[in-house]
């Protein structure tokens, strides 16, 4: 029997991350992370999925918690790490306070950089794959300036790292378009009727898995693809 795959998914308690967990939990060993407590996470995660609370607004602490969870599981190799945790605020950029800016950059970007470095030995041992979840907002967004900036940072980081690690660890960045996950509401943004055009969470997770299987360094799973089909990705 082939050995079971070991997969780390961050931001796995809701939305796209949770949908990825649901897809992989039946045949892989999964470690999920999120901001919420373990007790709250249990209520949404499928049985058998390991969980560690790791608030990425504090990257150094979050990464230490994830590493110690990996140690507890005895995982000295990883097949796949999907760094999906993300958060933003819908706000006039002049109204973004220093705290908001720091939280967005830390949770979306610096924590991913820190994790990439900390996970490298395990990914290398598992001949694994590192996948960063970006966003189509990475080209710029007036109402989400720091979020767009952080996602652009992930893009540039992944592209450079993919080149540096070529032949050792595969690195990819996948940019989802708008997805019906509740992230917009949490960010304080009402997409109105446009939400009908958003991809469903499960559809997006399936397309992300397909992108991972194709293995290209940069993939965009865009709004326009759904518009073209006139089915809102549903």
């Amino acid at each position: 029997m082939p050995r079971q795959k070991r997969i780390l998914i961050t931001g796995a308690t809701s939305g796209i991350g949770l949908a990825l967990v649901v897809r992989h939990a039946p045949d892989a060993a999964v470690l999920a992370t999120g901001r919420r407590s373990a007790e709250e996470a249990r209520r949404v995660l499928p049985d058998g999925v390991a969980y560690v609370q790791a608030d990425q607004r504090h990257p150094e602490r979050a990464v230490a918690a994830i590493l110690s969870a990996l140690d507890d599981l005895g995982w000295d190799r990883l097949d796949l790490a999907v760094l999906n945790a993300g958060t933003g605020h819908a706000v006039d950029p002049a109204g973004e306070t220093p705290q908001m800016l720091r939280d967005v950059l830390d949770a979306n970007l610096f924590c991913a950089v820190t994790l990439a470095q900390a996970l490298r030995p395990r990914l290398e041992a598992g001949q694994g794959r590192l996948v960063l979840i970006g966003s189509t907002a990475r080209k710029g967004a007036a109402g989400f300036a720091s979020y767009a900036a952080a996602k652009a940072g992930l893009h540039g980081f992944a592209r450079a790292l993919a080149e540096e690690w070529r032949g050792r660890i595969a690195v990819q960045v996948v940019h989802p378009g708008p997805t019906d996950t509740g992230m917009h509401a949490r960010a304080g943004h009402d997409p109105g009727r446009l939400v009908r055009l958003f991809a469903r969470t499960g559809t997006m997770a399936r397309l992300i898995d397909a992108a991972i299987a194709r293995g290209r360094t940069v993939e965009t799973i865009s709004f326009a693809r759904f518009l073209g089909r006139g089915e809102g990705g549903r």
């Binding site: 950059l105 990475r138 967004a141 007036a142 989400f144 996602k151 652009a152 940072g153 980081f157």
Partner: peptide
């Protein structure tokens, strides 16, 4: 590269 891409897209966004 990540930091400079972030700054560039912040400039475009604002």
């Amino acid at each position: 590269a990540a930091s400079k891409d972030a700054l560039a897209v912040y400039a475009k966004s604002v």
